[in-house]
Amino acid sequence: MLASRFRNAILTALAAVVVAASLAGCGSDKSKSARTTTLTVYAASSLTGTFTELGSKFEAAHAGVKVSFSFGGSSDLVTQIEQGAPADVFASADAGNMDKLTAEHLDGRTPKNFASNTLEIVTPPDNPAHISSFADLAKKGVDLVICAAEVPCGSAAQAVASNAGINLAPVSEEESVKDVLAKVTSGEADAGLVYVTDVKAAGATVKGITFPEASTAVNTYPITTVKGSKNLTLATEFVELVLSSTGQTVLADAGFAQP
């Protein structure tokens, strides 16, 4: 009795698997008949807004093409591409990570710089610690949060500080620029160092304070097609779109500067 019930349960489960598999099969047939090509773009997470917008523009101009994005920390993306991730295009937030992606993974072309980004001070909207200059960040009692030196925004912060001869004593060194921003928007930190584009994207939840010392550490964003791409023509066209006046306008609107 019990055994037969058990057997029934197994048969039901098997039937469910078969039905599910055939349904999935139908799904792939349908997409095949529409003949969509997917262009896979790996891009630094600071490009999320701008590249998503450029992706829709690209899809509108290319019937049957779907642009699929993987946004993440540049070094994570490099690791994934090195491990064989199917990227057609790679856009890095700094030259260092692009260099790490050795020639064997690029298709022999030199990556092209398409944008640059500088640091900006960010505080909660009411600026509780009354920060008005870069030197104010080193004042006693200011809870400053920056990126750790291991990530690009942190090495930029260290470079700006040493060029300005100011010793920063942060209460936390976060793993990403998004983590720094979160500590400031939640009001835990009095001030943080993030990119101009992050301040712009955060809108009214924060107050941004530009400072002249920032120009001593400029982050340049390179882009390239990746070796082994099955859609090299499309990939090249996407890179061209980013470098075109349309692409540059979208990037400038988000706060990016010319490379």
């Binding site: 920390g73 990530v151 976060e174 793993e175 983590d179």
Partner: peptide, 27 residues
């Protein structure tokens, strides 16, 4: 920890946070 405490060597950066950070620069 990373959401609530932050990350600073010797104060709040525990071993899992250190591993996550090192992965960026020195796998």
């Amino acid at each position: 920890t990373i959401t609530f405490a932050g990350s600073l060597q010797g104060v709040t950066r525990t071993l899992p946070l250190e591993i996550y950070l090192q992965r960026e620069e020195d796998p």
